[in-house]
Structures are given as C-alpha cells and as structure tokens.
C-alpha cells in the first residue's frame, strides 16, 4: 500500500516540479549559448542579463516549491477536504504519513540533482564551443588525475561525502517530521488550527532541545554535527563517527515524530 501511495504522491508533486526542472534546464542551455555569442556579438547584454535573472528565479522557485509542497501536500491531502478520500482508503495511517515523508525526501533530492544538472547544462552549452585541442588535452589530464586520486587516495573521502549527504537529507527529514507532528497536534484544536500548529512546532523545538541538553549532561552528545570541535573531527574515522551519530539521532527523531503524527491522526482524527 505504501508503494501505491508513494506513486501517487510522486505524480501529484511531479506535475509541478518536473516542468520547473525542465524550464531550469532549458534556460541554462539557452543562457550558456547566448553567453557564448555575447562574447562575439555586441548588443546582447540585455537578453543575457534577463535570461540570467530568469535562470536564478527558476532555481529559487525550485527551492521554494520543494519546501512549500512538502508541507502543503501533507496539510491539504490529509487534513483538508482530500483527507476524506485519503483516510477512506484501506491503508494504515503510518503508510499515509510515510508516503508524504518519502515523497518530500525524494523531491528534495531531485531538486538538488536538477540544480546540478542545469549548472552542468550551462557549463556545457557555454563551454563546448570553446573546445579546442589545447582545452581538450587539459580536460583529459584533469579527468585522469581525478580518476587516479579516486582510486588511490580519496575513496574513503567519497564515502564520507555520501554519508554527509545522507546525514543532511535525514536531518532535513527530521525537521519535516517535526512540522508534520506540529500539524497533527494543531489539528486537535477545534479552531485556529494553523496557529495551534505553529505553537506546537515551537513547543516541540523547545522540548527537543531540552531532551538534547538533558542527554548531553549524561554524556550523550546529540549535537555532534554542530559541535565538531568537541569531537575528533580531524580524522576520517572521527568524522565518520560524528556523522553516524548524527544519522542515528535523526533517524530516532524521525521515528518519534512519525509515531506522534500517526497516533494522533489514527486515534484523534477530526476531519470537520
């Protein structure tokens, strides 16, 4: 059931995000080509500047829409009128909440990929016409050097980078899980539910910090990522340990908030 719910979430968000990704890629390509010709033709400054602004705005729109949709999809689809459809499905509440969370993580990742791809698209469309024997030789040397270092020295670093990316994704998912829990708590109010959700979010933030401070006094540092100087962050193993601790803490936070959200929506749902 989770896979079906996830599929529909992907589709619902994709209809908004995919055109934005497409527009971003297209504007990057055109901007690169125009920037190349601008070096050779006079009078193209204004179109290039306009396109650069459009390119920037599209990237901002991708970031904003990724964040906004992560929250509004949960609120509108589960706690709004569409909730009458979703909560009538023969699916468990954890699956309904989990699909929203997985979708938000998926689209956040996709937005990062789209941003990188459009940067590459700009670089290619601007850079390819500049290619000559000299630049090709320099690039192939650079590529060979990268591959050599990858094989010999920095393979552990690459693994660490992936671990860092995973930690960042889970940390963001933890924040989202707190927002979902706050919305579920605010939903318990008979009126002014948005206000209730905002207050719940602040309350959860304070509570989470109290728990972290309490744990730190007992020797368990859950702030490890942000207090690198306290740990041995200078070595690979130190960094890996730091990231793994943060990863575990984020997983626990997501699990706890997910449980709060699921229990509230399952046992105290009030679609009015």
């Amino acid at each position: 059931m989770l896979s079906k719910l996830f599929k529909y979430e992907i589709k619902a968000v994709g209809r908004i995000m995919l055109p934005l990704y497409g527009a971003s890629l297209l504007s990057a390509l055109v901007l690169g080509i125009m920037a190349y010709f601008n070096e050779r033709t006079a009078g193209m400054d204004v179109p290039v500047a306009t396109l650069a602004i459009l390119f920037t705005l599209l990237h901002m729109a991708i970031v904003i829409m990724t964040c906004v949709l992560s929250v509004t999809r949960f609120y509108n689809n589960l706690l709004g009128t569409e909730g009458y459809l979703m909560f009538s499905l023969p699916a468990g509440t954890p699956a309904l909440v989990g699909a929203k969370m997985l979708s938000a993580v998926f689209w956040s990742f996709m937005s990062v990929v789209a941003g990188l791809l459009s940067t590459v698209a700009f670089a290619l469309s601007y850079g390819l016409p500049h290619l000559n024997e000299e630049t090709i030789a320099a690039l192939s040397d650079l590529f060979a050097e990268i591959m050599k270092r990858l094989r010999l020295e920095h393979i552990q670093g690459i693994g660490l980078a992936f671990l860092f990316l995973l930690t960042a994704i889970l940390a963001a998912a933890g924040l989202l899980a707190r927002i979902y829990a706050a919305l579920a708590i605010g939903h318990q109010w008979s009126s002014h539910r948005i206000l209730g959700s905002v207050l719940a979010f602040i309350g959860l933030e304070i509570l989470e910090n109290w728990i972290r401070i309490f744990l730190s006094r007992t020797g368990i540092n859950t702030y490890s990522l942000f207090l690198l100087e306290e740990l041995d962050g200078s070595t690979m193993s130190g960094m890996t340990t730091t990231l793994l601790v943060t990863l575990a803490v984020s997983a626990v936070v997501i699990l706890l908030y997910g449980m709060i959200t699921s229990v509230l929506l399952d046992r105290r749902l009030n679609l009015e």
Binding site: A12, R15, N77, T81, E82, Y84, L85, S88, L89, P90, A91, G92
Partner: peptide, 20 residues
C-alpha cells in the same frame, strides 16, 4: 479502521477528489 474501509464505500458531503 483499515479493514472496514476495504468494505465500506463512502460518499462524503463535499468535493473530495483532488482537483488536479
């Protein structure tokens, strides 16, 4: 709960289908 929803067909008193 989940089991009863599989055997109940429900028509709410409002528009409930996603507009898109």
């Amino acid at each position: 709960g989940r089991e009863t929803k599989a055997i109940v067909s429900y028509l709410p008193d409002r528009d409930f289908l996603p507009q898109w």
